[in-house]
Amino acid sequence: MFSWPSRAVQLLGRHLVVLLSVVVGSSLALGALVWHAPGSPRGQHEGFVVWMLAFWKGLLSGDLGASYRGISVAELVFKGAAISLPIVLAALALSLSLAFGFALVVHGQSQIGSRFGRAVLHVTSLVPAFLLAYFAIIVLAVPPDGFLPSLFAVFILAVADGTLGDLSLRIEAELSILRRKDFVLSAELRGLSMPRRLARHLVIPLAEAGASRIGFLLGGAVIVEKVLGLPGLGWIGYQAAVEGDFVLLLAITVLVTALVGGSRLLVVGLRLVIDPRARRMLRGSA
């Protein structure tokens, strides 16, 4: 017989095993391709398995060897991540905040506001990120250095490629379900402050929606960073692909896969911490 905290640990452990399997599976699949590509590390290692084991060992110790240009892969990845991750996280935060606002407007009483909100969301869903970055360069003359390209990248990733539209629709759907719940109706009748109560119940859906968009944002960063000239993970990864620096590409891909999988694991953990129903369910099964 297990208590509910140990059930929670079991559940998280199961998700962690899936995450590790996905990361290992991804690195094996890409590693096999790299192994057979021209300029592969075949000459330096005795076999594919030995090389992969050395790669995973290096992944854990932070030493992934040298890139095509002789620079440390780990150093390049850390430098790129230091630029890309704040941009992606800021874009996600901005997109979620805007989406929450738009969902309130679209779901609100004003028909004009609702239609205007929907129109804005439809238009932003159609604009590709690379096109916005392109217009930022040719119309707004964004300089290639300084803080401005990062700010533009945050805004472009938050709004373009359907990120804002998708998040708004998800939040609006959740809001619509929540508003019909008895406890919300009762709180509304008692004149209690609604936004605070609604926000509390929207944390999990917001986190789930955010986690589902992490992959899109990291993918979008490849194009946006390249267009705006930001030397982040996307830019480094794209250059590595073009120059045939496959060991660096493998390291970046594994990191990105781990980030996408890790964000899903984080949502599971968050649900267990915040949602009493999830804990109750685990107590029931304990």
């Binding site: 899936v18 391709l33 590509a37 992959g215 993918g219 490849v222 045939g244 496959f246 990105v256």
Partner: peptide
Amino acid sequence: FLLTTLSSWPRLVLVVVGVAMFTAM
């Protein structure tokens, strides 16, 4: 499991990695 692995790869990363491998080969 294959679907979970595939969905963990951002779309553009999958495309760029795949086409880079193809071009190299």
